[in-house]
């Protein structure tokens, strides 16, 4: 039977299993995204500060933070006096 247009993901899911690695990756991203967003809701932070707060390597923080910046969830704040590190904050959405 032809699957209904717009509901083909369900059809494929019935035919083949989703890879466990894909599910694990989604869980990890969802968890990290929430932890970064929660931390930035409190205050603007640099990558080093986020790394310390989340106990996550700086390079991983940068990767996820830049992904959230690309998706429009966070935005850059100010740069420090030494012109080295930016702070990041939750992006304000104009209602």
């Amino acid at each position: 039977m032809e699957p209904e247009k717009g509901k083909t993901a369900k059809f494929l899911k019935e035919q083949q299993a989703v890879s466990p690695a894909a599910i694990e990756n989604l869980k990890q991203f969802t968890r990290i995204k929430k932890s970064i967003v929660d931390a930035l809701k409190e205050e603007e932070l640099t990558i080093s500060q986020l790394s310390e707060k989340l106990a996550m390597p700086k390079t991983d923080v940068l990767y996820y933070l830049m992904s959230l910046l690309k998706y429009g969830i966070v935005e850059k704040g100010e740069i420090d006096d030494m012109d080295e590190y930016f702070t990041y904050k939750i992006k304000k959405v104009n209602e």
Binding site: K5, G6, T8, I23
Partner: peptide
């Protein structure tokens, strides 16, 4: 993950997992 979110969001129903 075949969650179907893309299909639900697509205004032209052009996502086709078949």
């Amino acid at each position: 993950t075949l969650c179907g979110a893309c299909e639900r969001a697509c205004p032209t129903k052009c996502i086709d997992f078949t």
